[in-house]
């Protein structure tokens, strides 16, 4: 297991390195003067020089890359250009990140149990109308973009019912319960988008596990459905679900940009959009990198959890080699 962890960590570091290279390269391969692109078309010559200096755009690409790598490890991305002029980029990122974490945490709390339950019910009622309803509504909802779901929720829940709030950010100093109430609509939107996907993965995993010989043997030994599930199936059936949740966590943090805009929530996605609107490249870059790193950690955690649940998965990566 230790060898597996080490090899997996090494792969994560390589991924991080490639992400850094890509992010460094983007302004350098864009046609035209990178500083002008970054500062915006109307920037003054002094502003261009300033941008060039603060981002080191005149340096060779390798030096820019080294700078960016240092920034990641020292958690220092310099100062914001314009979103909050002069403030350290990281303090903006941290506060946006803690908002995002609240949204993601609450979403997971609602979404994971409901979607797994939906998938299990669909698997046990395979090929009945219940199964088809769960799979098809899930499929339809997961196809629509998050902001479309958000706009529907505004029209059909926020307007008719006082209880649902239009703004996802509660007034400062609100209790946790009031904050949760404000977050409810975006959480429902996330549920709509992800329910079908996770339920489908869980359903497929459970059906495979139920068809297996060990499950049949357990049923023949006279164990109840619940016991068979808990003692024999759960571990195997839920593995794909764990893996999928890991890969989706990064998307939950950074992919809900449009949803955060609809509900005026100050998460990491909203920060990135504000950075673009005000041509604040350091904030933009740090925001995107943060999301990538969260994704990396989440997939790493999911892989380790899957390896813990299933020794065979370990053999695929590391131990056998």
């Amino acid at each position: 297991m230790l060898r597996f962890i080490l090899r997996r960590l090494f792969l994560a570091l390589i991924t991080l390195a490639i992400i850094l290279v890509i992010i460094t390269l983007i302004p350098n391969i864009a046609p035209g003067d990178p500083a002008r692109k970054i500062a915006g078309g109307t920037a003054s010559p002094e502003r261009l020089i300033e941008v060039n200096e603060s981002l080191g755009l005149q340096d060779p690409v390798s030096a820019q890359l080294a700078n960016l790598a240092t920034s990641v490890f020292t958690l220092d991305f310099g100062e914001s250009f314009s979103v909050a002029k002069g403030e350290p980029v990281m303090s903006l990122v941290w506060s946006a990140l803690s908002n995002s974490a609240k949204l993601v945490g609450f979403s997971l709390l609602v979404m994971v149990p409901l979607s797994i339950l939906g998938g299990l019910v669909a698997a046990y009622k395979k090929d009945t109308w219940i199964d088809r309803t769960i799979v098809n509504t899930g499929l339809a909802f997961s196809a629509i973009p998050d902001f479309v779901a958000g706009v529907f929720l505004l029209a059909f829940l926020a307007v008719p019912f006082e209880f649902f709030k239009v703004q996802a950010s509660a007034p400062p100093g609100s209790s946790a319960l009031v904050q949760a109430q404000h977050l409810l609509l975006p959480v429902v939107a996330v549920l709509m988008v992800y329910f079908g996907y996770i339920a489908r993965v869980t359903r497929a995993g459970t059906i495979t596990a139920l068809d297996s010989d060990y499950a049949r043997t357990a049923f023949m030994r006279g164990l109840s459905t619940r016991e068979v599930f808990r003692k024999h199936i759960a571990r195997n059936a839920l593995q794909p679900t764990v893996a999928v949740l890991g890969t989706q966590l990064g998307y939950l943090f950074g992919g809900m940009v449009a949803l955060e805009i609809v509900f005026g929530y100050q998460g990491i996605g909203n920060l990135i959009i504000r950075a673009v609107d005000r041509a604040d490249y350091p904030v933009l870059r740090a925001g995107v990198l943060t999301v990538a790193i969260i994704y990396m950690i989440a997939t790493l955690a999911a892989d380790l959890l899957v390896a813990y649940m299933n020794p065979r998965a370990r053999a695929n990566l590391g131990e056998a080699s």
Partner: peptide
């Protein structure tokens, strides 16, 4: 793997921002 680890929409924002 590296490209897949950044949500498509964020990467698109970054690229469209720098390329116009």
């Amino acid at each position: 793997e590296a490209i897949l680890s950044i949500p498509v929409i964020l990467m698109a924002i970054l690229v469209v921002f720098t390329f116009g």
